[in-house]
Design a binder for these strands. Structure first.
Lengths: 347, 347
DNA sequence: TCAATATACTGAAACGTTACAGATTGCCAA
DNA sequence: TTGGCAATCTGTAACGTTTCAGTATATTGA
């Protein structure tokens, strides 16, 4: 029998990934010492610490995630929970990129946990919590009374919501100020002399639906304009539905001369519907629309545009979860992005 | 001292997550037996097997991922490697959703591994392989001579590429038939009497750039049309750049009367540039454009459209990686999606 | 001088899983 | 009866990490 490779002392054949044992062998220390030296524990001599860290860097030591996770329960994972059917367009990629930017310099990985319309939105959350698959969770499509947020609070897992809740419970969030958006939008339409305004709302049931509707109403009375109800569709409806309903609306006697749209894709349908009805954007009616990528002005230069930065949202959400995981007070991890790219922190 | 909670035999207080030890205690078997019973090992009695599986289901046993991963090296993770800066719009979310659909019924998680333009695209791949963070990898922006694909083949990690390589190496891929797309596009333009055609290409350097260019050239000679060179921009360029260049192009004496566009966002810029030059879509020039979400027809009804389904691509890619992980031959995990939603498998 | 204490380090155990190398039982052929 | 063998089941070790409970040595105070 030739040269037994499996000798008890570590002759890791250089190709193997180094572990604490490897480092211990190389430095002549115990694995405990190495472990503590790497995380700057106080009871390790200054020189030993430096020596260990040097060697670790030299041979490119990377802690084994499974080992850490098994021992400590820490996953170093942030989960982004997404609805596979209702999330809109580029929204998702921007959020992901935003989150990525923030966790790039951390040991965290981003896992995407999808769920479909047919499922209870709580399902994926329960899964994550029960299996301990993540240290932190990011959710979107937040509702005023959100079962997921409540559940996560009860189970003590750090999370951040895209959008606010209204349960009197404190948790990190990032939100776009849709009230301000609606106010701004109405003012701009009023500035163009528009007096009969309609609102294409966010999905009913989500918190920002309320924010938008309230902002719209507040601004209407401020500028003395009146509302033309348009509640048969929301931006969650299909392009075709929005287009048809818009055409119907615009053919009525009492049609709006200004519309506020909460999403870019929906705006395309709005305009199509308007033109189906034989009307002209900018002449017969003006539209203020939110957009997240800078394309709408190419579609129709007459469109009035407000930008919402989802990449920023992703970054803020990631920062918030990481902050909570790191022990910060959840109440201080809440941010609001107002139209015009200014970011306001609470307090 | 009262009732010691930490008795050696498992009195897991019902709130704890069940482990093999819990199951072993409940069934009166050894943990080895339980482990094997759960994975239908042959040397376990039929009744025992059923009994164990029943109990496991009842108490909702879920194997601890960290335990499995530490012991076996299996991560149950698929990594989707994305460029955070160049990937376009809804592209990403569709792919993610496609992948999600496929892995939903498996124990796999999807992690998104981003890299930025400044980095070597090989970096994230190296990281994944060196740290053993994933069982399989999906990459996009595939090049004819792709260092990443070569690296992954050398290191024996299963992967699938979105787009083909041309290295004479066999690996799973999914691709849209951009040659066919370009041919189809030219034919449609020719059918409208267009004879001087330009091509807004995919990013130079990516494999499908070549496919598109070749298809374009082949079809040109087939229909007897001529090419107006337009190689100063690609769909990777900014909207503004494409718009400006297009306007310049369209103001020339020898301007195209038909354009083929490889991406929807770029098409918006194309049209803007055309109109900047005082020309009219459908009258002075026709455009055939790819799109991945069904919105372009709202932008300009005159646009001629070919659909590319990225969600399908995501699903196919996931199926391919899982197939390879499962031991299938990589050469049989290659699929091509042709314009018109028909999906062709190799052979 | 002795004990007390601080400093720097260490081995063993544990997290949950699977692989290896048995152990126990019953049955059958010789 | 015995040996052999198949059918089932089991204990132990190991994956890489951190924590617990130390140990050894030097330093201090009286």
């Amino acid at each position: 029998m030739d040269r037994q490779r499996t000798e008890k002392n570590d002759e890791r054949s250089a190709r193997e990934r180094p572990t604490l044992k490897t480092l211990a062998f190389m430095t002549g220390l115990g694995v405990t010492t190495v472990s503590r030296a790497l995380k700057d524990a106080p009871e390790i001599g200054a020189e030993t610490r430096r020596r260990v860290q040097l060697v670790a860097k030299q041979i490119g030591y990377r802690p084994n995630r499974a080992g850490v996770r098994l021992r400590t329960g820490k996953t170093n994972v942030i989960s982004l929970v997404l609805n596979t059917e209702q999330e809109i367009m580029s929204f998702v990629s921007d959020i992901i990129y935003g989150v990525s930017e923030v966790i790039a310099d951390t040991p965290y990985h981003l896992i995407v946990t999808p769920y479909s319309r047919s499922q209870d939105p709580l399902d994926p959350i329960r899964y994550l919590v029960e299996t301990g698959s993540a240290d932190g969770i990011i959710i979107s499509r937040t509702q005023p009374n959100d079962a997921r947020a409540r559940y996560m609070l009860e189970h003590g897992i750090p999370f951040a919501t895209h959008g606010r809740t209204e349960m009197g419970l404190v948790h990190p969030y990032h939100d776009f100020d849709n009230h301000a958006f609606a106010v701004e939008a109405v003012r701009r339409l009023a500035g163009k002399g528009r007096r009969k305004l309609a609102l294409l709302t966010p999905p009913v049931g989500l918190t920002y639906h309320g924010h938008t509707v309230n902002g719209f109403a507040d601004a209407l009375s401020e500028v003395g304009a009146s509302e033309i109800p348009f509640s048969t569709v929301s931006i969650d409806h299909s392009i075709e539905q929005i287009r048809t309903r818009t055409a119907q609306l615009m053919r009525r006697e009492n049609r709006p001369d200004g519309i506020v749209s909460s999403a870019a894709a929906a705006t395309l349908a709005l305009v199509a519907g308007i033109e189906d009805a034989g009307l002209k954007l900018g002449r017969d009616v003006d539209i203020v629309s939110k957009q997240s990528s800078d394309l709408l002005h190419l579609f129709r230069p007459e469109l009035l545009i407000v930008n919402e930065n989802f990449r920023l949202a992703g970054s803020e959400l990631a920062r918030a979860v990481l902050g909570w995981i790191g022990g910060a007070a959840p109440g201080l991890l809440q941010s609001l992005s107002v139209p015009g790219e200014v970011l306001a922190y609470r307090r």
